[in-house]
Design a protein around this nucleic acid. Structure first.
Lengths: 163, 163
DNA sequence: GTATCATGGATATAAATTATCCGGATATAC
DNA sequence: GTATATCCGGATAATTTATATCCATGATAC
């Protein structure tokens, strides 16, 4: 089980957009440069976030992306779900009903599969952890923990690409 | 992000083996019949569990599989890790160091990526949930919650295939 | 009007998953 | 001892998913 690369890209892009000033935007090409990833493929991830209502996209010259709402209202889970669709990682195939149990009527299987339930509880714990952390939270941590050398370099680059 | 089918198969097989009496075994073919899955592919999952030390495999006529240790000492996480290798689902590619940050010396990146950390904390929550649930726990829930009709059918089938 | 940018569909490539095959080793039944 | 049933592990094939690119379209700034 593993996440696609776009999850990482989307998280970083969302965080970068969260650090922008009011009314500022970055183009897809700029974000692709920032992280050195394929621009047209990154565009798919940005598009997914736009569809999910996390970012606003402005076409045309001086267009680009910015957050659609406050960074404090966007959780990491929101971003991940936008990219991966929010479907559960464990998908019960109900194999418990096969073989010798295939003759048993459906009504006896009223209780969900206990193993599937356990897997879903675990996923809920995962989702809870990620839904409790917003872009604003991470941004605050960045301000506190990331060295000034790095923050300065990012601020400088951003100011050269922002619109 | 999604789990392979073998995870579900392995969990159900492990639970079935946990329900066996002392010294009893089931062959890979029998388990494949029980869940109507491809025998030779299920064998790979059983092999992984054997390699991980979760089940003992006995070759030869009247051979088969049984748990290698007490059901109360095998967690669902043990089974999943045996199948999927226990690698984290999120693998940080350190894209934060690219682009404008590629000139910054490595020593400034001493703190791990905050987004990667958040993802790993979420995975830890997932793992904690699953490591806290053993096959014995689930077996007890089955005894309590699964209708007798189903349990009886399984017991009957098992007794016809066990060695 | 022209250059820049996002959109979304189509398509191509790479990788992981799923599945099968087979020769070899081992233990049991007869 | 021989035949049978079983696990092992490497090789290979088929299928599905992830990754990546291409291009036609429409919107916006200058």
């Amino acid at each position: 089980m593993r996440h696609g690369n776009r999850v990482e890209w989307a998280l970083h892009c969302a965080l970068t957009l969260a650090g922008l000033g009011k009314g500022q935007r970055l183009s897809g090409a700029a974000l692709a440069e920032l992280y050195e990833v394929p621009p047209q493929y990154l565009a798919k991830a940005l598009q997914s976030m736009a569809t999910a209502g996390l970012v606003d996209s402005v076409p045309g010259r001086a267009g680009g992306y910015c957050l659609a709402r406050a960074a404090s209202s966007i959780s990491l889970l929101d971003v991940i779900d936008a990219i991966e669709g929010g479907e559960p990682a464990f998908r019960c195939q109900e194999i418990r009903r096969r073989g010798p149990c295939s003759r048993i009527k459906s009504r006896h299987f009223v209780k969900p599969c206990l193993l599937a339930e356990a897997m879903h509880r675990a996923e809920s714990a995962w989702r809870r952890e990620l839904s409790g952390l917003t872009l604003a939270d991470v941004l605050a941590d960045v301000a506190r923990e990331v060295p000034a050398v790095i923050r300065d370099a990012l601020v400088e680059w951003t100011s050269s690409r922002v619109t």
